[in-house]
Design a protein around this nucleic acid. Structure first.
Length: 504
RNA sequence: GGGGGCGUAGCUCAGUGGUAGAGCAGCGGCCUUUUAAGCCGUAGGUCGAUGGUUCGAAUCCAUCCGCCCUCACCA
């Protein structure tokens, strides 16, 4: 690693030490003021002395005067280094350079052209950077390097920093929304001995002492509903789930899921909750209910339109009824999505996905799904073939999934057993009988919700790729000893095989 | 897995068979109001890797590695 460091920076490091200064001091000499505070009331504060700390940008050198910007978490401000104000620092000024982290004490003012500037009277090196910053004008643009070295991306690209601050604010608003409704936030196990609550291939890991296989959770659902049995009544969890599938602009193998469960509510209540979340995030984070995503504008003002699954199915399939098995199979063959391994309802759902989903620009709640494809949803009291379930679509992307939770233990046991009997290799291989036992003790009627936080953030921030809302998206491992291009090591190369597809 | 694109200096990129280039960053100078500062000078390379074709390969061919886009798969 260190062999690729810029030799001139190492030389400066040595120089600093030889002069008895510390290139990595343990303490910051003062409590830094956010630079944004200096700019916020510049006129009233002109002439006052402040201490700021952050990373130095490009240095513009005029011999006896130099300028640079100092960036901290709140923004950045120009620093003016004048020879006559810095008698002690001046001879060693070149040991402090772009990308170093410094503390600066100085007097607030402006330049002749009115640029707010902190005129330095004391400069303290806080951290010597041994690698240079990316080029000043184009910055760091290589996508692979940006993902692999997000730490560089973050300080080099302000909009990237802002993006992740926005993500954090979205999550904070969601928490506040549920907290105000009396929900409690809980944490359930990530390591599951039986993966369940969704249809997906799990990651397998091993517990050594117990000598048993464990699975990284594909959903927290079944544990959260156990809490309803326990009487917690309103719970939510925002946490990582893991699905052992491919990678794309909409899929990362680990992603963040919000799940909430509310006793004595049903899927209609949950629709209100979803609208409440969207409304709140739009108002408090985005500042608008109109968002731009992939070239289109979407109005997220509630209420969102509701469309029945079976009606949409007929509408986009020449009036074919979802439950008309022979005609649906025919249609599936015609579309080339007829997989005889699957159950009839799954084939029909594939037809739905092929014909209806592309048209779901939204926002739209697709409601009342066929019960057969909803193993955890309660059937409608009016039509036993229909489950009280909805999914929220915006921009053709599924953002949320919710239902009136099935709490009939006998029905649930039968459905889980049917799932295991299914040939589909994505379905669970084992029934979680403890979950059934929990239901036998009585779970209150409840409405449950799942929302993909990453996709929600994509939508809200107009981001095309899920990798741009994940700080560290999954990438292939580099070979040992291999470094990323940015420090002169041999580029690329590696072990491992090819990745593909999905998740979430 | 299929198709397409890309990989050259720390960064951003030119270079399509004949001595590896530019801008920025770096280094040495000049400069007290710049903000992509300017000017003069200087240094910097396993052209992703391996093999092949050729008198000669960054360039043509093959294989491999990595990233992006897209389709497929999949919430």
């Amino acid at each position: 690693m260190t062999k690729h460091i810029q030799p001139d920076r190492l030389a400066k490091l040595t120089s600093i030490r030889e002069k008895g200064a510390l290139p990595y001091p343990a303490r910051t000499p003062g409590d830094p003021v956010p630079t944004a505070k200096l700019l916020a009331s510049l006129e009233e504060q002109t002439g006052e002395t402040f201490f700021v700390a952050g990373r130095l940008g490009q240095i513009r050198d005029f011999g006896k005067l130099r300028f640079s910007h100092l960036t901290d978490r709140s923004g950045s401000i120009q620093i003016g280094f004048e020879r006559d104000r810095l008698p002690e620092f001046w001879p060693d000024r070149k040991l402090v350079e772009a990308n170093d982290i410094v503390g600066v004490k100085g007097e607030l003012g402006t330049t002749k052209k009115g640029e707010p500037t902190l005129w330095a009277t004391e400069v303290t090196l806080l951290t010597k950077a041994l690698r240079p910053a990316p080029e000043k004008w184009h910055g760091l643009t290589d996508v692979e390097t940006r993902y692999r070295m997000r730490y560089v991306d973050l300080f080099a690209n302000e909009d990237v920093r802002r993006q992740f601050i926005t993500r954090s604010r979205i999550i904070r608003e969601i928490r506040a929304f549920f907290d105000e409704l009396g929900y409690i936030e809980v944490e359930t196990p990530v390591l599951h001995s039986i993966p369940g609550g969704a249809t997906a291939r799990p990651f397998i890991t091993k517990h050594n002492a117990l000598d048993m296989d464990l699975y990284l959770r594909i959903a927290p659902e079944l544990y959260l509903k156990r809490l309803l049995v326990g009487g917690l009544e309103r719970v939510y969890e925002i946490g990582r789930v893991f699905r052992n599938e491919g990678i794309s602009t909409r899929h990362n193998p680990e992603f963040t899921m919000l799940e909430s469960y509310e006793a004595f509510a049903d899927y209609k209540t949950v629709m209100d909750r979803v609208e409440g979340i969207f409304s709140r995030v739009c108002a408090n984070v985005i500042g608008s209910h109109e968002i731009r995503f992939r070239g289109n504008t979407y109005d997220l003002t509630p209420p969102f339109p509701k469309k029945r699954y079976c009606e949409l199915f007929a509408e986009h399939n020449d009036g074919v009824d979802f439950f008309d098995e022979s005609r649906v199979r025919e249609r599936a063959k015609q579309l080339g999505v007829h997989n005889p391994e699957l159950t009839y309802e799954k084939i029909a759902n594939d037809v739905f996905e092929a014909t209806v989903e592309p048209h779901l620009d939204g926002p739209v709640f697709v409601i009342d799904y066929p019960k057969a494809i909803c193993p955890f949803a309660k059937a409608s009291d009016d039509d036993p073939r229909i489950a009280e379930r909805f999914e929220l679509f915006v921009a053709g992307m599924e953002l949320g999934n919710a239902f009136s939770e099935l709490n009939d233990p006998i029905d649930q046991e039968q459905r889980l057993e049917a799932q295991v009997a299914d040939k589909d290799d994505e379905t669970p291989s084992e029934v979680d009988y403890d979950y059934v036992t929990a239901l036998e003790y009585g779970m209150p009627p409840a409405g449950g919700l799942g929302i993909g936080i990453d996709r929600l953030t994509m939508l809200m921030t107009g981001t095309d790729s899920i990798r741009d809302v994940l700080l560290f998206p999954l990438l292939r491992k580099l070979q040992q000893g291999e470094e990323i291009a940015t420090d002169g090591a041999p580029d690329t190369d590696d072990a491992a095989s090819n990745g593909t597809d999905e998740a979430q």
